[in-house]
Design a protein around this nucleic acid. Structure first.
Length: 577
RNA sequence: GCGCCCGUAGCUCAGCUGGAUAGAGCAUCGGACUUCUAAUCCGACGGUCCCAGGUUCGAAUCCUGGCGGGCGCGCCA
């Protein structure tokens, strides 16, 4: 919302009491109670102390010396302990409405971010199985944050990091090898203790036994991010792999095949969920380009490493971690932690001035060491920002469903999409603060009814579209606005709605800086409610042509805001329901 | 034991980064469809904002200490 005229007048008035711009921060807020006007400032409360004045008295003096046109502000009042409240002239509101209509799908954008290049990494699930529910939450929130940041003037880059190297892939290989042997009816093959017990491995093994190798196509090159690196099906055939004398080598072949299959599957899920990434980054790429070694060297030269018990340690306690961490194991293998540092070092080298990572609830222990490593690299305390997404409980019949990946009993993201639909899932995930545990009520999500907030918002959008269609049928052009029409909007429901709509850019900025996407869904629900009230109280297509045009304009503006908010959420805005 | 997150209406949660009388939805009760989509709207009921101190003009919001719940504390990833 622009209030330059008010700002200028206030700055001028404050000079009169001896305060200059560098002495204070002038802040405005939209009072939650419309009785307090359209805009409010607490500047008198903040300056009362340094000026040794009574707040209300000071506010009165400031208000009295304000030089501001009646075309801008219709009234100025002092209220409460010393707030200065402004009521904007009717003309201003009409202008706001015109702005929304003019800006259309750009309405809500700002240049808060000044094109800052921000890397946003989320989901980054291990390629050892299908996406689970926590990944689904990260998918919804991470992608929404990227869109919100973009709208707020940042230049976000979304990224998926895939741990396709290391022990887990070998373990996955052992698991698939055992299941494959079992599928062939061989005796004496068991999935290792630490292996992957999931049903999906059994399914993959059975396919392998019955149909042989299956070359996957990796969907989503344009939307999910092109894959750099080698994910080809390994040479030979599974019976040959199984026959290999070296069990590790055998498991490696099965592992590579499983990787090939899992990543293809994960990317199909992304496409189904409408989830996009700019980059799909493979850990193996780091190894191939020797980035672990160079990272280790850099830390070593800066004096942050030492050797003990044959391992190489990072002195993370220097940066507030509770204990030092191993970067290279006694057997010479790098830890996942070293790879992660190297990965973030690469992000930094690629020119991102900030990186945001989403962590799952079980990884919060890694924050301190990661931040420590970034500091050791000299990246500054704010360069890496780690956001924690709390766990998700699926609730069925009022009871939580237990989920465990290792035990193989898990609800996958695909199953969730199947069950409730991608749009409902996304909205539910976004409609909660990052740090809150999320009870996902499957029964509620499945209801296509009034109880389901997703449909509440979608319905508002569809309802507007319906009205606009009806206008056409009646020969009214919903786009036409004539001089003076908009001044006809005087009903409380109309002004409440308009006031809310014009807050959209600030709401997006708030969501962008707080990283809380629940601001967006919450706003969408508020706008929907305000529209439904307006619809209930005011007949849009009436006898009065001028008033009809004004209300159609307001409806179109609402449609724009709802469509934009839903787009940020990644949810479809239907024209009919 | 140590660390991180959470604690707001019977339930699920908001509360715009410290503002004015703490809000929605669900549930319960009552009302509104010959009228642009009733997947909607209106009303009623419902609170020790976990507790105790502190900071200040002002605290659900910030600080300290408790209490309660969740999670984490590998040369796993």
């Amino acid at each position: 919302m622009k209030h330059e005229a008010i700002r200028k007048a206030l700055v001028h008035a404050l000079e009169g009491v001896g305060m200059f711009e560098e002495d204070y921060v002038l802040e405005f807020e939209v009072p939650k109670d419309p009785a307090f006007g359209d805009l409010s400032t607490n500047v008198a409360l903040l300056l009362a102390k340094p000026l040794k004045r009574k707040p209300r008295e000071l506010a009165g003096e400031i208000a009295a010396s304000l030089e501001i046109s009646k075309d801008e502000v219709s009234s100025v009042e002092i209220a409460g302990p010393g707030f200065i409240n402004f009521r904007l002239a009717r003309e201003i509101w009409a202008n706001r409405l015109v702005e929304i209509l003019d800006q259309g799908d750009r309405f809500g954008s700002s240049n808060l971010g000044q094109n800052e290049r921000v890397n946003i990494e989320f989901v980054s699930a291990n390629p050892t199985g299908p996406f689970n529910i926590v990944s689904a939450r990260a998918a919804a929130v991470g992608s929404a944050l990227a869109r919100v940041l973009e709208m707020a003037g940042f230049s976000p880059h979304t990224e998926f990091y895939c741990n396709d190297a290391g022990r887990q892939v070998v373990l996955l290989g052992h698991s698939l090898r055992a299941r494959y042997a079992q599928a062939l009816g061989r005796e004496g093959f068991e999935v290792p203790e630490e292996g992957y017990q999931g049903e999906y491995v059994v399914t993959l093994a059975r396919e392998l036994a019955e149909k042989g190798l299956h070359e996957e196509s990796f969907e989503g090159d344009d939307t999910v991010g092109r894959i750099k690196g080698d994910l080809a099906v390994p040479s030979g055939v599974p019976t040959e792999w199984l026959a290999l004398a070296d069990e590790e080598e055998s498991a490696r072949s099965f592992g590579r095949y499983a990787l090939h299959s899992m990543i293809a599957q994960q990317r199909r899920t992304c496409v189904r969920f409408g989830l996009e990434f700019n980059t799909w980054y493979l850990e193996s790429e780091l190894h191939a380009t020797d980035k672990l070694a160079s990272t280790r060297r850099e830390l070593e030269e800066a004096g942050h490493l030492y050797e003990e018990d044959g391992a190489v340690w990072f002195r993370s306690t220097e940066f507030g971690d509770e204990k030092d961490r191993v970067l290279v194991k006694a057997d010479g293998q790098p830890t996942y932690f070293l790879a992660d540092i190297a990965y973030h070092r690469a992000k930094h080298a690629r020119g991102f001035t900030r990186a945001i990572d989403f962590f799952g609830p079980d990884h919060h222990g890694h924050i301190a060491r990661m931040q420590g490593a970034m500091q050791a690299m000299g990246y500054g305390p704010d360069w890496l920002e780690i956001l924690l997404l709390q766990q998700v409980n699926l609730i069925l019949d009022g009871k939580p469903l237990e989920m465990s990946k290792r035990a193989g009993r898990l609800v996958t993201m695909d199953e969730l999409i199947e069950e409730v639909g991608a749009d409902v899932a996304k909205f539910f995930f976004l409609d909660r603060k990052n740090g809150s545990h999320l009870d996902f009520d499957l029964d509620l999500a499945k209801q296509q009814s009034n109880d389901n907030p997703v449909y509440y918002v979608k319905y508002a959008h569809a309802r507007i579209c319906s009205v606009l269609r009806n206008a056409q049928t009646r020969g009214v052009d919903p786009e036409k606005v004539e001089e003076g029409d908009l001044a006809r909007l005087v009903e409380e429901a109309e002004l409440d709605l308009l006031r809310l709509l014009s807050e959209f850019p600030q709401r997006i900025e708030g969501a962008a800086t707080s990283r809380e996407m629940s601001r967006i869904t919450g706003f969408a629900k508020d706008v929907s409610a305000a529209f439904h009230q307006f619809y209930q109280n005011c007949v849009i297509l009436g006898e009065d042509e001028s008033l009809t045009r004004a209300r159609l304009a307001l409806s179109r503006a609402t449609r724009i805001v709802l469509a934009n908010a839903l787009r940020l959420a990644g949810v479809e805005a239907p024209e009919r329901m």
